[in-house]
Design a protein around this nucleic acid. Sequence first.
RNA 1: GCCGGGGUGGCGGAAUCGGCAGACGCUACGGACUUAAAAUCCGUUGGGCUUUCAUGUCCGUGCGGGUUCAAGUCCCGCCCCCGGCACCA
Length: 804
Amino acid sequence: MERKYNPQEIEPRWQDFWEQKGTFRTSEDHSKPKFYALIEFPYPSGEGLHVGHPRPYTALDIVARKRRMQGYNVLFPMGWDAFGLPTENYAIKNKIHPRIVTERNIARFKEQLRSLGFSFDWSREVNTTDPEYFKWTQWIFLKLFEKGLAYKQEMPINWCPSCKIGLANEEVVNGGCERCGSEVEMRVKNQWMLKITAYAQRLIDDLELVDYIDRVKVQQRNWIGRSEGAEVDFPVVGTPHKLRVFTTRPDTIFGATYMVISPEHPLLDEFKEQISNYAELMAYRDQAKKKSDFERAELTKDKTGVEIKGLRALNPATGNEIPIWISDYVLMTYGTGAIMAVPGHDERDWEFARKFGLPIVEVVVGGNVQEEAYTDTQSGIMVNSGFLNGLEVSEAIKKITAWLEEQGLGRRKVNFKLRDWVFSRQRYWGEPIPLVHCDKCGWVPVPEEELPVVLPDVENYEPTDTGESPLAKIRDWVETTCPKCGGPAERETDTMPQWAGSSWYFLRYTDPQNDEDLAAKDRLDYWLPVDWYNGGMEHTTLHLLYSRFWHKFLYDIGVVSYPEPYKKRTSHGMILGENNEKMSKSRGNVVNPDEIVAEYGADTLRLYEMFIGDFEKSVPWSTDGVRGCRRFLDRFWRLQEMAVPGKEFNPSLETSFHKTIKKVSEDYENLKFNTAIAAMMALLNEIFAVGRITHAELKTLLILLNPVAPHITEEMWVRMGFPGYVHAQEWPKWDPDKVIEETVDIAVQINGKVRGEITVSLTDPVERARELAMANGNIQRYIEGKNIVKEIYVPGKIYNIVVK
RNA sequence: GCCGGGGUGGCGGAAUCGGCAGACGCUACGGACUUAAAAUCCGUUGGGCUUUCAUGUCCGUGCGGGUUCAAGUCCCGCCCCCGGCACCA
């Protein structure tokens, strides 16, 4: 038998053991309390696993392993989010079918994950590219379509010229493509859209039902961007038309001295005949069209715009005629694409008014609106505002809104920044959208029993320059018959975005082989919602919002029984390179987990990733830190040599053990893995100082460390000849009475400065503390010749004597 | 600009119902072991001053004030960093 700790020998052996015995298979015994732990399933890239991956995986593996020992029926599954661009690009470049590339990448990832000893139930593995899986992704889409939540629309989209793909707003970062960084252009395309905006309010409201870390909730609210205000109709003079605006400040309507509409606004086309400078306006529109939203926002320094000659609006409050301008600072995609400009109290309007010499009127007192816009108007008194004069802002808002409603000129309105989800991708490697276009019947869903609509095998996956999907060229796939009328029809050639498959994958884990339903209802009811979902902050406005939307929809149609998919959401920090920069191939600072496993072992890697620092923060990798963790395990291994029989805790270590059990138990649940490990390290130091460890103590310690370092603890348990296996033990409990030290060393302060130390029992009265303190020479020195003014004695904490 | 999080040794980080700041780990230095090195073990490691030894003492948690017997922690006013949103009406 080997003496030395040899993870390279131990770890694969235990991994085989767990697999063969099905140790971590989840049962469907619904009488047991359940715990569903979820981590974001990875995109199996060609790069293989990165040291960032195991951080969240280990964290929830720890919680899952602990909960099993606490008697829960635990579901901790894993799968693959395998559709996506990099695979397709690789396939194009190397002329290998993306399916093959995907298979290969998955095999690699799986092997790497296996080598880290995660307690996934691999029998429940899902793969978004598996037709048996995406059949249900397509099914959900058809349900959305059926309910009118999927629609096709001609609309300007963010177009990445390098990926040749349309991007959702969420995929545009600082004006560039999230994936490749190329600058995004605007293009008008006919796209499938999902009406996530119909759920905007519920997506905000139901955040109340869930336990998400605060920054996640805040970011979601931020992204949805709810704002309350009113819609107001401004009559267009000499026409029956009314120009509708959205404003959050209807109270300032008396200060609206002109209007601005977006260059794309349809008003221009409608009144083409009456507009005398139509050509000029069109030139401006063309110019604006060329700019992306980002560019438009970038050019913030200087306002541009053109007045519409021949059209004027009527301010319904003042009765004055006011000019209408077009400017690209008004976006067609928010509100109504038109604003009432109140230059006195809005910086943008003020700037614009200044530049074009438009009148500026003060309506809330407090500033000097000729000098600058006065925007500190959350409160204030109205002036120059007719019947609102003298009112407080909040009163004025109520009064004007009521007046507008009475006059039929406006109404209260809530607006959201959230836009509908661009759901089409002009790509090959994605789920085909299961619709057929028939000249007679329009868009017709593929009948459910014909799902899945699978991808045809093709020679060439290159996207076309026209922006059409490569599928469009496969005529014998495209050409089909209409399911409704039987006439000739064409398949939709757009595919779904990567976010589709990941919007519901956690449901499939409950019943991954089901071919009748997306998952059996009783399983969904038992397992959902997910008890704890950990994932990256980068998915807060994408995946997390999308999947909440889909889940709410599935709730509405009765598939699931709770409106929220995830009860709790936490997020891990990134692991940076040793140089404190983001790990990337180009920076050459990537650490490969395989090498760490080969050199130090999986347990060391797991331990290190949990000990490295605050779980929620980014932290640089440190090879020296890894060695320190290996050293700990080497020392831990040597406990075997100092083990002595005994069913009790050594009295001198008893309190330490109970404290450690408490600390570790609590810290594992609170993302404080680093301090849990520190506590075990400290206890190990104490044990080494004592020089021996009883069997009872060693068993306890093995169980506590097992979730972090499962291989070494399994091995030591068996080597010690303890009955059964460590993973099958019950999680230890601490005795609240034994967590408290009987005697403690506390500081004695004179006027708040530490001047000595005494050893007291918690139950000792102040007299006892005083007696001990007075015996201390240094204390005597400070008290001599002084009057004791006050004594503060906090048992177990401090003894402070105030002298004068 | 708005919202959120955060500034603690040479480094990662502990400690926030106010109660000995720096747990745990790393690094560095010194020592033991070794022919030597690695590994391992022991010791020191916030700064200054003091001390033969022991110790003692002052300063120190981004900056400036305040409350308190006592402040990293609470209050007021600033500075800086990270993340999100941003011509959103």
